[in-house]
Design a protein around this nucleic acid. Structure first.
Lengths: 122, 122
DNA sequence: CGGGATCCCCATAGATACTG
DNA sequence: CAGTATCTATGGGGATCCCG
């Protein structure tokens, strides 16, 4: 019988942070929401290569993790807005640090990652 | 990640950072190496639940990404040491920020992650 | 001691179609 | 416009065995 994957050692804080950010579009979504991109349709415009389903899945995860809140307006046409919670806002500086490090070392990183990441203009 | 289908948007720096840290044990490995745990056998002692193979895979990735350097001593018994490169050292503050955020919000996060695990499909 | 090679499971996420 | 259901498949990571 295949045993469940070895649980992550949650006593390591960085692993918790990685867990919360785990997902292909999460950091981008959080940054986008922080910048005012709050409606799903706008997010799709921001990330045209992400499917609606995946965005929904990740938004749901972000919501369940307490990083964003979801507001449904009972209108026609339907309107939904996502906002950062306090916890989500507290994560922004962390994303910002990651953002800066990634940008600062973009050249070296892209070279090293070149075999794994295809270039996409987006 | 799934770059063969849809490549990650590399114009987002945080995605680069996530790519580099992508892997179950990478942040722990980097922190360990920074603290002087440089030999594979020591890493296994530090992470007894990680298999040797996975540690090797992730160490190879870290090396390939330019975060660590590998030194092989042609001795008997064989000896190998990993050291942080400058790039790897520059990443330490980033991990530290993630570490602190994760620790600061441990309670809420563990609650949210546990709740997430409890949510099974109907 | 250190590092592969092989096999296998399942979580993430892509494509598509459908509902309200 | 927003969200869900089903299907598919890539690849991360676990177990195990074998080599220098």
């Amino acid at each position: 019988m295949y045993q469940k994957k070895i649980a992550n050692t949650l006593n390591c804080g960085s692993v918790l942070t990685k867990e919360v950010l785990h997902g292909k579009w999460k950091s981008t979504l959080l940054a986008g929401i922080a910048q005012g991109i709050q409606r799903p349709s706008a997010m799709q415009r921001m990330l045209p290569s992400a499917t609606r389903r995946v965005l929904n899945v990740q938004l749901n995860e972000l919501e369940h993790h307490g990083l964003v809140s979801k507001t449904i307006f009972p209108e026609l046409p339907p309107r939904v807005e996502y906002h950062l919670t306090e916890l989500g806002q507290s994560l922004l500086p962390v994303i910002e640090v990651m953002e800066q490090w990634g940008n600062a070392h973009r050249i070296e990183l892209e070279h090293a990652l070149a075999r794994n990441l295809a270039e996409l203009p987006d």
